[in-house]
């Protein structure tokens, strides 16, 4: 199944989803298609002002352009997602590469979609690591 991960650029979540037999939907994968597949109009991410307008599907015109641009990239991933893992309490460097408002909107959209979703906490020690990994494993195996 296609699993949306949140934060969408997490190494840990990407690895675990793939390790336990599913396809992670990640921002890196989406951006990779963007930066290597077609002509580069707007380096570095190739998010063009026209893409930012496409983000209007997910957030209104009064929402800052940076959020709409992010949603233009990540919104379609949520549309595609069949299940999701949300990780909370991530250290600050996590998140949609920068904007917490976008994070909040993404989480809301995932929950609204009512796909199977698990919410876990970022581990701060080995014991919490065990809890998180076992929860994710059980969740992913249950999806098969």
């Amino acid at each position: 199944m296609k699993i949306f991960i949140m934060p969408p650029n997490s190494l840990i979540l990407y690895d675990l989803v793939e390790r336990f037999g599913h396809q992670p939907l990640s921002v890196m994968g989406t951006l990779r298609e963007r930066v290597s597949g077609r002509e580069m109009e707007s380096p570095p991410l190739n998010v063009t002002p026209a893409d930012v307008t496409k983000g209007l599907k997910y957030a209104g015109i009064e929402v800052p352009s940076g959020i709409r641009g992010r949603m233009a990239v990540w919104g379609p991933m949520i549309d595609e997602a069949e299940a999701a893992i949300i990780m909370h309490d991530t250290p600050f460097t996590f998140g949609c590469v920068g904007c917490h408002r976008t994070n909040l909107l993404l989480m809301h959209l995932i929950r609204k979609k009512k796909i199977p979703t698990i919410e876990v906490n970022y581990p701060e020690d080995e014991e919490e690591g065990k809890i998180m990994v076992s929860k994710i494993k059980t969740f992913l195996e249950g999806l098969k």
């Binding site: 840990i12 014991e127 494993k137």
Partner: peptide
């Protein structure tokens, strides 16, 4: 560096917690 890089820095530091989880399961 971008937040993506700093995030990897932090995730790398915490990989032992995930290792513990994988061993446990």
């Amino acid at each position: 560096s971008r937040p993506g890089f700093n995030q990897l820095e932090k995730e790398w530091m915490d990989l032992p917690f995930i290792e513990a989880g994988l061993c446990a399961v």
